[in-house]
Write a protein that binds this DNA or RNA. Structure first.
Length: 261
DNA sequence: AATCTAACCTGACCGC
DNA sequence: TGCGGTCAGGTTAGAT
């Protein structure tokens, strides 16, 4: 590939010699850890990318009659926020666009990824068998913060964001204000299972599209249609009560006082 | 050590 | 149409 950095930083500075370290490499494999995208390169390094809030990767090709520079999948993106461009073989170009620039990229040795600042201390993948009610209970035991804040902490469990924490707590019928160390064994078990089931369901229907999220094939997610509480302040819960909103550690929490104890 | 707050940015939306 | 205020999918640095 050949990379093009149109600015020296996104959220953080791009790594030293970013363009040079990518030049001529091939991508062996693409994977994910938490909310990080990982592209393993044949140079022995891995490109680490995080989309932040507004980042997106778009694939641009000349196939299907689109001319060079035309967007295939990123309808609505403003080209002035195209910060990094990867020119691949086969006439494919991958554009990183990010209006708010909360995303970031890094390069690290593939065999040293776990030691990078991004992954040190990170909790288990929620859909793996390394995550369970018992594991969650162990992580919550020493914590006095509200369970909402604990689940957002990537050291407790990796990859959950504001939407899925709200929805998981609703499904587990646990109030977001409950202190982490106050959950019973039964409750942590229910919560862990709720997280797994909810994520599996969300992935099945293509994730959640709030405003502009699109899958790599250009389709929108559908899980937002199944939200019980997220973004539904003032609307009626399935129980008939009103969905409430409160602010915890600077983030909106949506919940039902009736359903969640 | 744990936890909270502000900060990083732009854009969309709402009320006036 | 414009203006100011609020809010947004996340994470980190710094204060407490």
């Amino acid at each position: 590939m050949r990379a093009e950095a149109r600015r020296a930083d996104i959220r953080f500075p791009l790594p030293v010699r970013f363009v040079e370290r990518l030049r001529g490499t091939r991508v062996n494999h693409v994977r994910r850890r938490a909310k990080y995208l990982l592209a393993d390169l044949d140079s022995g390094e891995t490109l680490i990318a995080h989309l932040g809030m507004s980042g997106r990767f778009s694939v641009v090709t000349a196939q299907g009659g689109f001319g060079f520079g035309d967007y295939v999948y990123n309808t609505g993106a403003d080209p002035k926020h195209d910060h990094v461009v990867f020119h691949l073989s086969e006439d494919a170009t991958i554009i990183y666009n990010d209006p708010r620039r909360f995303g970031f990229m890094d390069l690290a040795r593939t065999d040293q990824l776990e030691t990078t600042r991004w992954f040190v201390g990170m909790g288990p993948e929620p859909l793996s068998n390394r995550f369970s009610g018992a594991v969650l209970a162990e992580a919550l035991k020493p914590r006095k913060s509200p369970i909402k804040a604990a689940l957002l902490d990537q050291q407790v469990v990796a990859g959950l964001g504001n939407i899925y924490v709200c929805e998981a707590l609703f499904r587990a019928r646990i109030a977001p204000t409950r202190l982490s160390n106050s959950l019973s064994t039964a409750e942590t078990e229910v919560l862990a299972q709720a997280i797994k089931a909810m994520l599996a369901e969300a992935i099945n229907v293509g994730g959640s599209t709030l405003r502009d999220f699109k899958a790599s094939d250009g389709t929108s997610g559908a899980f937002q249609e199944r939200f019980d509480v997220y973004g539904r302040e003032g609307q009626v819960c399935i129980c008939g009560a009103n969905v409430l909103r409160l602010v915890q550690s600077g983030r909106s929490t949506f919940w039902c006082e009736q359903c969640q104890q």
